[in-house]
Nucleic acid binder design. Structure first.
Lengths: 205, 205
DNA sequence: AGCCTTAGGATAGAGCCACTATCCATGCGT
DNA sequence: ACGCATGGATAGTGGCTCTATCCTAAGGCT
């Protein structure tokens, strides 16, 4: 298939496809000769991935490029999942200082939940976030952390169990990202409803 | 105090303050005469609110305008909190159809948790989100909804209890928005860590 | 009283992002 | 052999959040 057909099948305009090619999100088609290139099902799949990451998750071009580069480089699955987490759950842009109360709180949570005691983006992000909250004078008691982490442990168990092995790396990213996003959003909607319910009970009388 | 001092005390450049005035985020200062206006502590507080909503929460000007308009119009506290939720937890932009499986699932959750059975943005958002997930063929079992909602119910109870009564409407918005945001982000970080932990257990062997 | 500074108002420009449109030489398909 | 689509390059668009410039008017210091 060539550009026009790819465009029609994916619903992405040719101009945008060219843009994605330029930005390195979409690998170039196999050049039949100077002015003709052939695209495959892989390109279609990639375009679907790009569409989902842009429109559903709201990722920017740079973030998407990072993910698809990893896919093209064939990095291990766990690293890929970690990268997806980083952009979908917004774990990036954090600077963690070593030690400190926040780090201890994080360690305590990890021990309490029996999670593997290894460094990770998620762990750094958690520590950094606790530091941020401490800086903003928003207290996070051990009780709260305990309750939150228990809840998330339960949720994560269900999430991971529901993840099925995908047939291609692009599909892995797609299902993992969409799944993570949808589940975390679901959690936030439930939180909103729960908060609203508690607020009504508390204030409306 | 006048423009320059307001700028220095808030850390916002005069040009940006003018922009906020133009956009109606900041009420005009009390005009001493044609070319001089006096700003008060309220303006400083408002600027801090705007800064936080922009930089920490990433709200856009339109969303902030909506919130501060409500504050200036003196709408009831519960409505204000609902509006804060809408922008902070991203409950807007949803179209819900009446009835359907998703609505039933939402009703079931509300009954199960003993939450007040009233319409709300949060409830609509939840229903719409469940519809979206169904459309994407991401199954959400009753078990999952039960576990998630229980977790969020516990969390919300702690959240609301931690909310202290603020002295001004701007402060109410600020503490509510920052608190909501920080707590929801904390949850997401914990979710990330929990997921990573489960994934390691599952895949790394 | 006179002049320098600064406020406020209006308008235009900057910088970023994700496209989108135009232009051009090329060469396949009919 | 010739029209039309292609790849490649480059420039433009529109939305958003500022930021900079200009201008007039007036306060206040001397």
């Amino acid at each position: 298939m060539q550009l026009n057909e790819l465009s029609q099948r994916s619903g992405v305009t040719p101009a945008s496809i060219k843009y994605y090619l330029r930005e390195g999100l979409l690998p170039p088609g196999e050049a039949v000769h100077a002015t003709r290139a052939e695209y495959s099902a892989r390109h279609l799949e990639r375009l679907e991935l790009i569409q989902a990451l842009r429109q559903i998750m709201g990722l920017n071009i740079g973030q998407i490029r990072g993910l698809v580069k990893m896919a093209d480089d064939g990095v291990p699955r766990l690293d890929l999942l970690a990268a997806v987490q980083r952009v979908v759950l917004d774990l990036g842009n954090y600077t963690t200082s070593i030690g400190g109360e926040a780090a201890e709180a994080t360690d305590a949570v990890v021990r309490l939940r029996g999670w593997p005691d290894s460094a990770s983006d998620a762990r750094n992000a958690l520590t950094a976030h606790l530091e941020l909250m401490a800086g903003l004078k928003i207290p996070v008691s051990e009780t709260v952390l305990d309750a939150y982490s228990k809840a998330m442990d339960d949720v994560a168990g269900l999430d991971i169990a529901a993840t099925t092995a995908p047939e291609s790396t692009d599909r892995l990213i797609l299902t993992a990202a969409v799944g993570m996003h949808m589940h975390s959003q679901l959690l936030l909607k439930l939180l909103a409803l729960a908060q609203a319910s508690h607020a009504i009970r508390r204030y409306q009388r």
